[in-house]
Nucleic acid binder design. Structure first.
Length: 862
RNA sequence: GGACACUUAGUUCAGCGGGAGAACGCUUCCUUCACACGGAAGAGGUCACAGGUUCGAUCCCUGUAGUGUCCACCA
């Protein structure tokens, strides 16, 4: 016997361990069609948040659903080493432990980092277990494990040999805190307040000067020229002359180039090739020197004279003061401009000329774009995110993949100590003592981009790779399309000549209840574990996956989780009722549509429609729509109606009907449990285990299917009329201040044939004996007209109320009739609307007219 | 400067070419033997605004306004 109240803690206890130990999570049943997903590997830097909970629950629902649908489901787990983030955190920890990190060696650091990884991986495992995820742990991978390293080296060498990886000196974004290069998308541009500073650049041997503006005066130490547009009339007379750099007194040329826009700013632009991407282009074009003026920590270097060693921002102020004292500082204007910040530590990044490894993106991107456009390569759900992907691919620049870190895949390149020759290869050269391996590691996303195939064993032609690749679905949030999804797509196309996944299901971000992004600085983050402690993991899972439409953000609202828990309690209690009416010796009866009552036919039809609608939406990954169909069935059809009606039948003395009702109750309950199961596996398993007959676990069950013999349309009229009558009587009692079980004088007139049950139920639900009469009804009282019958309540109401109620109903009918007549008198409607529509409007109009007539007759008799 | 979303009941969100839906909140009533984490019955919306297409628009198109997100090197 089930407890009176659904208790998540009791229900959840032990189930996950059982599923896991029974091997239900392990893929490999060759008799079935394969279905595969790889988890977006979480970083080993911290706890999982609500976003992870959402993302993984969606996948778990898909996995469990597909398993029930008869697939051999592989859901592969794993984690990401997250280069910069993890290295930063490990360093922080070492500092707090009192370790002198300036003296630590690469090997020592890596030892600590692997310890850190082990610790955090354990946390993540626990949280996955708590969420109930059916991950195949026998195939778990880590982005830094040996197999993935092999894949990374193989891809690096492949791209290098194809000429798609090169080492070059270019302007990259430099993170002075981590002291590493970053790729473009690791830089967050945010609008910061700053100043535009204007300086006098004096012409050599002249009293004249030109005004030059900059937002970063400290870079003036790297100026190599001043540029003007050759057609700018303002500056024609200074072509070929030289100016004095007010920062260091150096004499630099004026260069004419179309790049400078006439009329923008002062029309004269200082050029710092080593510290600005545009200036770099000009520097290259004219073969200019490219002095670097910063140290790796963004302090000023030896090229900056007395400012050497100063922080860049301190230098800026000091330099301003000095130039001002010489009279060459004109003014500063407050401006708001986009400033690049490191995604990981928010420091201001410095554009800097640096020798790095790059992936040549244009050919890779073009191939991916062509495949996507011509072959509808990867199916984006929702579709619009395909544009996001394509747009990014079309505007892509070369990808800086080297990082000056230790935690990551080391670049498989060696430099000959004698000749300086660079060797890129899978393995170290044999005469290793003559070579030095590149000290850099690769961008984390380089290895993540190989995730769907590297985890399955590639580059080896393993069984798993052959069976499960390409994967079926990838589920991720839209904020990671650039970072990850797009890279998997072009990497996979280039290296395996296959798509990484058939479908990519994109979801949104979880926000706080005010719609703000959850962040550490706001302190508005919600810990999934706390939610689970309060409401249970099933309620959290249900809330997360049913409260937003595909691709849309969602707000975390506590009341909604609570409401999800209430829903589960409702299912729990309906199960409790059903099970309580099933005796030990109960024998299931064969459900023959011919022997079913109208109410039975109705509920089974509703069940079939629900299975159909839920399944359709599951296939579309629309979990909100799928769940709401089930929700409506559970509350409105099953609990509010059928379950109450079953009490009438179960109290009858018809043995056959009693058993038939029990069978239907059980059938509905079982299907509800199976349909809700992918969302809320714990409570579903618990209830399932309490069914009179069941398998070892719900995980071995199959998904409900529509049985055509239970699909009907005719049974609805009688039942719907019954519901209408019941509602009117109940409302009547409330409006008239009568108690719910007050006896009334009821007369009904029917336009359709009904079964004896009709009267039985009406009696039971209204606590009243029912009289019948022919339409239109005669006698005094309140009348309620419906398309298939009318109801007359003769007791309790006064005349005035009766009249006003009748008049209200007449008004409603009249407005309906005028609507119908307007439509049907419109020649355009008759000519162009679908025939069925016209017919149904005609029928409705006739019904309303009949209703109006009977109401008017009623009124005249009062 | 581009791109994409969003604007529907008090609130959070669904829906979508042929009569506006849910949850929570609110009002009234009910502890009747599945559930008071409940039941019954209600109130509450010119579906942002303006044009257009259509027999018919909350829904499609165009524009406007507001909100949000992403992308973008403009000195």
């Amino acid at each position: 016997m089930l407890e009176k109240r659904y208790s998540p803690k009791d229900v959840e206890a032990g189930k996950y361990e059982t599923w896991k130990s029974k091997g239900y999570f392990t893929a490999g049943d060759k008799s079935k069609q394969p279905f595969s997903m790889v988890i977006p590997p979480p970083n080993v830097t911290g706890k999982l948040h609500l976003g992870h909970a959402w993302n993984t629950t969606i996948q778990d629902i898909i996995a469990r659903y597909k398993k029930m649908k008869g697939y051999d489901v592989l859901w592969l787990p794993g984690m990401d080493h997250a280069g910069i983030a993890t290295q930063a955190k490990v360093m922080q920890k070492l500092v707090s432990m009192g370790v002198d990190v300036t003296k630590i060696t690469r090997e020592e650091f890596l030892k600590y980092a692997w310890e850190w990884k082990a610790e955090y991986a354990e946390n993540i495992h626990q949280q996955w277990a708590k969420m109930g995820l059916m991950l195949d742990f026998s195939r778990e991978r880590f982005t830094l494990d040996e197999g993935l390293n092999l894949a990374v080296r193989r891809v690096f060498v492949d791209l290098y040999q194809k000429g798609l990886i090169y080492q070059g000196e270019r302007i990259i974004s430099w993170d002075p805190v981590q002291q590493t290069a970053l790729s473009n998308i690791e830089v967050i541009h945010q609008d910061d307040e700053g100043y535009m500073y204007y300086f006098k650049y004096h012409l050599v041997d002249s009293d004249e000067y030109i005004e030059v503006a900059t937002t970063r005066p400290e870079t003036m130490f790297g100026d190599v020229c001043v540029c003007v547009n050759p057609k700018d009339p303002q500056y024609t007379h200074i072509h070929g002359k030289k100016v004095i750099n007010p920062a260091n007194g150096e004499i630099i040329p004026i260069i004419c180039d179309e790049y400078v826009e006439i009329g923008f700013g002062t029309g004269a632009m200082k050029c710092t090739p080593a510290h600005d991407p545009n200036d770099f282009i000009i520097g290259k074009k004219y073969g200019l020197e490219m002095p670097i003026i910063f140290n790796k920590d963004a302090t000023m270097n030896e090229k900056c004279g007395k400012y050497q060693g100063m922080d860049r921002f301190v230098c800026r102020e000091a330099l301003l003061k000095d130039i001002d004292s010489r009279g060459d500082f004109i003014k500063k204007e407050k401006i708001v401009h986009a400033v690049g910040h490191s995604e990981r530590n928010n420091c201001v990044v410095e554009p800097m000329l640096s020798k790095q490894w790059f992936v040549k993106m244009k050919p890779l991107a073009q191939a991916a774009i062509d495949a996507q456009k011509n072959e509808n390569y990867v199916n984006f759900v929702p579709k619009r995110f395909e544009h996001t992907f394509l747009q990014w691919m079309e505007n892509i620049e070369d990808w800086c993949i080297s990082r000056q870190l230790w935690w990551g895949h080391r670049v498989p390149a060696w430099t000959n100590k004698v000749t300086g020759e660079v060797l890129v290869a899978m393995e170290a050269p044999k005469d290793i003592e003559n070579w030095e391996q590149d000290s850099d590691v690769l961008d984390t996303w380089f290895s993540s981009g190989l995730w769907p195939f590297s985890t399955l064993g590639w580059p080896n032609e393993t069984e798993d790779y052959k069976r499960y690749f390409p994967t079926s679905v990838l589920v991720t949030a839209y904020d990671i399309i650039f970072f990850w999804v797009s890279r998997m797509i072009f990497q996979s196309l280039n290296i395996t000549e296959k798509k990484p996944f058939e479908n990519v299901v994109i979801h949104g971000l979880v926000r706080d209840e005010k719609g703000r992004k959850m962040s550490k600085s706001l302190g508005n983050g919600i810990d999934p574990i706390e939610v689970i402690d309060q409401y249970g993991v099933d309620a959290l899972r249900y809330f997360l996956t049913t409260n937003s439409t595909p691709g849309q953000d969602m707000r975390y609202i506590d009341e909604k989780v609570s409401s999800s828990a209430n829903y589960l309690n409702k299912i729990w209690n309906s199960a409790r009722y059903v099970l309580s009416v099933i005796p030990e010796d109960y024998k299931e009866v064969e459900l023959d549509p011919k022997k079913l009552t109208s109410v039975d036919r109705w509920i089974l039809n509703r069940l079939m429609m629900t299975i159909k609608n839920v399944t359709n939406n599951m296939e579309k990954y629309d979990f909100n729509a799928a769940s709401s169909h089930l929700y409506n069935f559970v509350y409105d059809d099953f609990c509010s109606q059928y379950l109450e009606m079953s009490k009438v039948k179960l109290n009858s003395d018809n043995e056959f009907e009693i058993n038939q009702t029990r069978t239907i109750l059980l059938k509905c309950l079982k299907d509800i449990i199976l349909l809700i199961y992918p969302y809320t596996p714990f409570i579903a398993e618990e209830l399932y285990q309490n069914l009179p007959t069941h398998l070892e676990s719900i995980m071995l069950e199959t998904y409900p299917v529509v049985e055509k013999k239970f699909v009907s349309k005719l049974s609805d009229n009688e039942v719907n009329l019954l519901f209408d009558f019941i509602k009117e009587v109940r409302n009547y009692k409330i409006v008239n201040g009568l108690s719910p079980n007050a006896n009334l004088d009821l007369t009904i007139g029917l336009k359709i044939e009904v079964s004896d049950d009709f009267y039985l139920y009406l009696n039971r639900f209204t606590f009243t004996e029912v009289k019948t009469a022919k339409e239109p009804l005669s006698g005094s009282g309140e009348i309620f007209s419906y398309p298939f019958g009318s109801l007359l309540i003769s007791s309790g109401a006064n005349k005035e109320e009766m009249i006003s109620k009748l008049q209200k109903q007449i008004e409603v009918e009249e407005s309906e009739i005028s609507r119908g007549e307007k439509m049907l008198s419109n020649p355009g409607f008759l000519a162009k609307a679908p025939k069925e529509k016209v017919e149904s409007e005609k029928e409705k109009l006739a019904l309303h007219k009949a209703n109006l007539a009977s109401l008017k007759e009623k009124l005249s008799k009062i």
